[in-house]
Design a protein around this nucleic acid. Sequence first.
DNA 1: GATGAATGAGACTTCATTCAT
DNA 2: GATGAATGAAGTCTCATTCAT
Lengths: 214, 214, 214, 214
Amino acid sequence: MQIDVLMTKGERTRAHIVATAASLFWQRNFHGVSVDKVAIAAKVNKATVYRYFADKDDLAFAVIRYNGEASIEHLFKSSFAEYGAAQDRLAAIYRKAYCSHLQTFDQENDVYGCPIVGLALELGQELPALREEAQRIFDQVETMLIEIARDANASRKITTNPAVLGRTLTQLLHGAFASARVAADPQRILDAGQASLALIGFPETQILQTEQAA
Amino acid sequence: MQIDVLMTKGERTRAHIVATAASLFWQRNFHGVSVDKVAIAAKVNKATVYRYFADKDDLAFAVIRYNGEASIEHLFKSSFAEYGAAQDRLAAIYRKAYCSHLQTFDQENDVYGCPIVGLALELGQELPALREEAQRIFDQVETMLIEIARDANASRKITTNPAVLGRTLTQLLHGAFASARVAADPQRILDAGQASLALIGFPETQILQTEQAA
Amino acid sequence: MQIDVLMTKGERTRAHIVATAASLFWQRNFHGVSVDKVAIAAKVNKATVYRYFADKDDLAFAVIRYNGEASIEHLFKSSFAEYGAAQDRLAAIYRKAYCSHLQTFDQENDVYGCPIVGLALELGQELPALREEAQRIFDQVETMLIEIARDANASRKITTNPAVLGRTLTQLLHGAFASARVAADPQRILDAGQASLALIGFPETQILQTEQAA
Amino acid sequence: MQIDVLMTKGERTRAHIVATAASLFWQRNFHGVSVDKVAIAAKVNKATVYRYFADKDDLAFAVIRYNGEASIEHLFKSSFAEYGAAQDRLAAIYRKAYCSHLQTFDQENDVYGCPIVGLALELGQELPALREEAQRIFDQVETMLIEIARDANASRKITTNPAVLGRTLTQLLHGAFASARVAADPQRILDAGQASLALIGFPETQILQTEQAA
DNA sequence: GATGAATGAGACTTCATTCAT
DNA sequence: GATGAATGAAGTCTCATTCAT
């Protein structure tokens, strides 16, 4: 849920709180960020947070949905909209992920990886519904990666089952973010991206194409 | 650090607390498990926990080291000891991971994934040293997976750079555990394992070999 | 900081907590009075205490400032306002100190002495800034006692250096409170008071004047 | 109770614990020093402390008695033994007090004042018997100061009641230590000493005689 | 629509003390 | 005579949440 001009004041406040909380939970974790800190960071009163969210868990749900929408939108849909070829789409997804992490890294010298997995791993057992929500998001992701796998199969002689390949691509994406955060190194995202391109039969496609491609 | 007979009483108590905490942090998360709960689960007094650990963070370090040693030992070293061929070793690693998760799943109907990544993602920013500790463990893992990649290269015509391939295998392993926990489905571990075997050039090797297939 | 009507609710709560804590720390000591007990005595929730004070130490600082202001005001400034002559001022200071201690003694059968020295001796090494705060208060006290010494010099043939005499008066005041608490006897305050009057050249001035003695 | 060669091992251990605790309680305070810290500082096991003292309070009693004996002995009795004249005795008392505090100050840059008053103010209300013990010690001190007052009266024309003067001297001594600790300045001890000498009619006697007196 | 103030529960941690060897 | 190990109670502090305005 992005902030836009058609929103009422309340909707904007709510969206602002979600975005703030999303950022804090991503940079640290859920339990380590108190509602107090969210309120202070969002520059609203703590009671205001509770006007919009039944409890802190409710905020976690809003955040994971927000993260899901944002990821699907900014990483996937936009890459699909900008490119038609499977390899270009996949490269774009990783390029966007890498660039945004690189920017964070330059500013904060840290890497936060996937905000959805972060929340889901931490809260999955306490809030099963949140894990399911996360899984729904990743199902969407997998669907899009399967589409890429299928398209790649068509254009190359790769004969792997697209569903199986899509699953692998999804897991590599997870691995990309997890290892990047643990290593505090955005480069890991590129590594996984190149491996993914190789998997769909385009090992020569560069995620960060050195200007002047042939 | 396993519990063994040569330990003093104190060392045994300490090891027992670590193992208990490791289990609880793995099943839920760090912040969600109070020292109180650890003490109760370990059947010791809370003050006893503080006799052996300076604070809860110190316990987290002990737990991540314990998890690291246990994983390296039971997943990797034992697979390397039992098998000589790259594909068998890799299959064994995934088989062990899968089987132990399957057992947990049968008992508790849940999947907890990698206990090291779990802690590292949650605490990496609060405790940078813990993230580094985790990274050190995964460097060891990657080293072993690179060895598998190198050996596979020798036996097959695969010409991928073993370092690059090892990195991909490591990331797929991360993806295996992350996606398994988020999906609450141990099968994901097998998926990643089969993909890994394909990557090293042994797509036909089965992780769970139907007893002597033709 | 006295409680008055112009304060906001929060300021009143804060002032009430400080006054309550001041009383408890005075009657016992700092470490012997838990924040819990302060909260209960002040009839507020423990968390409310922490809304107004960063930690227990912060409360100690507030208390010592409160004690300083109250002492300066009720013992010294009021005596200076009520009387012009050095001996009358000094007598008034001791009379007020004595009477308030006597009242406490009648009610609780105990003597608590100087609340500032009490805290400063207990916490001076743990909280150097608190000792300095106490010293600042006693510097003010000494300044006023030096003024009394100077004025006494003018009216009598006493030629002692007022600074030196002021220091002695300050130390006798400390001795008055310390010995009164250790002896559990308010009379010691009178003893020191009479000695002080003698020191400034007015041995005949009575602190507790038997109504119009000849 | 000093450590000497005739003691059994147990008595030596006990005396060593008391001396250690006395030092720690003096440098900080009673509640701020745990039994653990006493045991560590004394290099004995915590349980050993409890072999010799019923509880921590019991240790406080032992410490206050130890402090009392040491003060009476090293400040007073030794000064009485070394000198016969009232003014010399008083000067010696203050000189010893000053010098030992100066030494501490040079080493630790801090001033700890009177260890008996410190404990008595902190624990007087929790342990009334301890306050009484302290009072008994100060009664002895006062007795000796009264003797000095009486002797001074005889040698000078001072006609103050020795009991009254002794009380004042006692209170000034209290004031000396209290103000020295709060000001963190050993000089205050000298100030009170000179004032005391003046009070007994020997203003010209120097506590620290510049070598070559006439 | 928003906020300052308040709270109950529970977190982490330390303490004085005891037990078993 | 001494110690390593263990504990119950209590301490400091924070959290998620609600109330009153």
